[in-house]
Amino acid sequence: MTRTDAVNEAVSTLSGDEGDATRAGPSSGEAAVRTVVVSLENASVAVGGRTIWSQVSLEVQAGQFVAVLGPNGVGKSTLLKAVLGLVPVSGGRVTVLGQRAGRGNAAIGYLPQRRAFDPGTRIRGVDIVRLGLDGDRWGTPLPGWLRGAKGRAARARVAEVIDLVGAGGYAHRPIGQCSGGEQQRLLIAQALIRRPELLVLDEPLDSLDVTNQASVSALIQQVCRSQGVAVLLVAHDVNPLMPYMDQVIYLAHGGAVMGPPEQVITADTLTMLYGTPIDVLRDRAGRLVVVGQPDAPTDHRLPR
């Protein structure tokens, strides 16, 4: 069986089991009509003349928490960039919030995959959060005391999101002196500041310790639930996300599979997608735990 066949089989297994797998999140059991925030229709992306993935169709609904998983180099970041309009699709269509994907959509909060800020960067965390609010506007901001009510509102909003992510203790220090996890929180605050309808987060949990992975996942889920924000989140370790995910997108072999976690996160599907033995266990509390290092094999990127 070729790899493409394997993916197609995975897709058909998923959709065969429960009708349209992409539409059936565990939290949407009430079958209410929900707005589609992101939709890909037979989308393909080529970077540098090489097709990264093709014929991908999926839908993300408002308020859904969607995890994007897959081995290194399979095109997870590229998927997010296609949604943001930073990478053009070579085929098919990507629709975001009712429009064709394009740059500069104020209703999207974005956290790129990154290394840390240079230690010598002498700009405060609050300034970086503030740039998320109006950094794309031309001109020079007037000093706060000259801007009256508007300036006060902006400052209050900055303080509010910094509080929300719990970054108050270090937001006034130069960002270069903050730890990787502290920087990550400030950048999440920056992504949240414009009250986006869609949060696009590329590995927000890396460089966080286990406790902070759990609390940042909880924070993202809380924003997702309380404000109806759809979340598209890339991760390598599924376990901290297990309690929160509504849907999972698995990228492998140049294609994508989407479905509710209990269907995709099974030993059989994961073993097939990664081509290496992976177990899914249940702990005493009934939670799923994925065992095996999904990123280990080097030969299971998409065929060239």
Partner: peptide
């Protein structure tokens, strides 16, 4: 503290 105090509170 730069830990998760704020987050736990909000959640």
């Amino acid at each position: 503290s730069p830990t998760d105090a704020g987050i736990t509170a909000t959640v």
